[in-house]
């Protein structure tokens, strides 16, 4: 096993998975919150834009999103997302991978936040309006803080799914864990079970604490009603 880890540079693959997860998590949290706000807004066009986004990305396979990001943004539109230097290709793939992961998971973050909003009694937003808070103040001070606290568990689930979904970006050659796995299988098919065991263990180590943490946090942060 150690030999596998060394020969295929497994630790840098794990580090790549972690980096992808963290950046994509941050990005999708921001974008997902923004889309949730669109869906909560009183303006019909914005609501429509938000729900269309969610419908499109929730129903498109992630592989398609990843490949599309690569083909459309880079190949077709020729948009540069990285500087032209020695790591140009890797950087481009890495950033496009994050972009795709963000675009896709934002839809799920949005829905998680909306489920958090549903934990808030409707009267609170009305009370906020009746003391003269504007829509923005209402969101910032009343709705979103409670929505996040009520959405810890579903947000945690999105994060766990995201961690595992980073494996899909093998499709555009980002050297993370599943990419390393593919190479191991190719060159060391004699130790197939060890390879699978190693990869499974890696993801358990990455996601198990997330599950425990969100379970704990959701209780700790829950708003007492």
């Amino acid at each position: 096993m150690l030999e596998l880890i060394e020969r295929f540079d497994f630790f840098s693959a794990v580090w790549m998975t972690v980096k992808l997860t963290l950046w994509a998590a941050l990005g999708s949290l921001i974008l997902g919150t923004f889309i949730a706000v669109l869906r909560l807004s009183p303006i019909k066009v914005l609501q429509w834009a938000g729900s269309t986004y969610v419908t499109v990305f929730r129903n498109t396979p992630l592989t398609v999103v990843v490949v599309a990001a690569n083909l459309v943004i880079w190949n077709q539109l020729g948009l540069e997302v990285a500087a032209r230097n020695a790591t140009y290709l890797d950087d481009t793939n890495f950033r496009l991978a994050i972009l795709a992961l963000v675009a896709y998971h934002a839809a799920f973050v949005c829905e998680a936040i909306r489920s958090g909003v549903n934990t808030i009694p409707v009267g609170q937003a009305e009370a906020a309006r009746s003391i003269g808070l504007t829509f923005g103040q209402n969101l910032r001070h009343i709705i979103l803080p409670q929505a996040f606290r009520g959405a810890v568990t579903p947000l945690g689930n999105v994060l766990i799914a995201l961690t595992k979904n980073t494996t899909v970006v093998t499709a555009i050659g980002v050297a993370q864990v599943s990419h390393a796995m593919r190479r191991m299988i190719e060159f060391r098919s004699d130790v197939l079970f060890t390879v699978f065991g190693l990869v499974a263990l890696t993801f358990i180590v990455l996601t198990l604490p997330l599950g425990i943490l969100t379970g704990w946090a959701s209780e700790k942060l829950a708003v007492k009603r």
Partner: peptide, 16 residues
């Protein structure tokens, strides 16, 4: 609205 106070049946205090 700030000039018109409103008290609801279900209190509607901000729970957080």
């Amino acid at each position: 609205r700030a000039d018109v106070g409103m008290v609801f049946q279900s209190f509607n205090l901000f729970h957080h």
